[in-house]
Amino acid sequence: MSASVESGGSRRADAQRNRERILQAARELVHEPGELKLNAVAKACGIGQGTLYRHFPTREDLLAEVYRRDVEDLVAAAPRLLEQHRPPAALAAWFDRVAAYARVKRDVFAAVEAAMWRDLAAHSLGPIGEAVELLLAAGRSDGSLRADAEARDVIVLISWLTRLDDAELDARGPRLFSILVDGLRARA
């Protein structure tokens, strides 16, 4: 293999690592009070602003990707959890992840303009609804979850999460999710 190909492969790997570091730093910093500053993200990653701007030309691009990544991670968790747990337990474990997603959603949506918020919300509703439906369908199939439960029902019920501050989400979230899972269980 030529040195230039190896070098190119190395640069691509470095670029991917930088992108991941940028997203992680932005995910953490978006939660802090005040406007998310791109120079603060670059500083937290230990990279130059030019590197950050090559990956994310605008603050909105970065915030949109932070949100999209959280949606993707949440959606991808559903089938993995079903491989490890029966449907009610998988749904409960998935709800634990929903709480973390709700925090990021609240913070990102607070940081972006209304038009961008609508685009982000439209992007997430379909995939999240599909993940909920996957979990519910597994439970309907094995008889552990209600036959009449629909993904939209669950989404409506969990939509309040982005309205809670962290302390209330920490205090009430686990109990409320438990109540929701219990309400979704099939009755004998």
Rank of each mutant, 00 (worst) to 15 (best):
A77R: 06
R17T: 13
R12F: 00
D70L: 03
E72T: 10
A15V: 05
T51I: 08
R103I: 02
G48W: 01
L52E: 08
W94E: 14
I22K: 06
L23R: 14
L62V: 03
K105T: 02
Y101H: 12
L63C: 10
Q16H: 05
R103A: 02
A42D: 11
L63T: 08
G34T: 07
A26C: 14
E60C: 03
A102D: 04
R17A: 11
Y67W: 01
K105S: 12
W94N: 13
V66I: 07
L62A: 06
P88C: 01
L29C: 09
Q24E: 13
D61P: 13
T51Q: 04
R69V: 04
V30H: 01
D73S: 13
A89I: 05
P33D: 00
I22V: 14
L36W: 05
W94Q: 13
R86C: 12
G34W: 01
R21A: 10
A78K: 12
P33K: 01
D73P: 07
L74Q: 10
V75I: 04
A100H: 08
E83I: 03
L52N: 03
E28Y: 02
L62C: 09
A25L: 05
L29N: 08
R59K: 14
A76I: 05
G34C: 01
Q49N: 09
E28C: 00
A78M: 15
A13H: 06
D14R: 14
A15M: 13
I22E: 11
T58W: 03
Q84S: 15
A44T: 03
A102G: 10
L38E: 13
R54S: 10
L62M: 09
A99P: 04
A93C: 12
R106P: 00
Q16D: 15
K37M: 11
H55E: 14
A89T: 12
L81F: 10
F56P: 11
Y53M: 03
L38S: 09
A76C: 07
A42Q: 08
E20N: 08
A76W: 00
Q16R: 14
A26Y: 13
Y101M: 09
A89W: 01
R59E: 14
A64H: 04
H31M: 09
G34M: 01
A78N: 15
E32T: 12
W94K: 06
R80S: 15
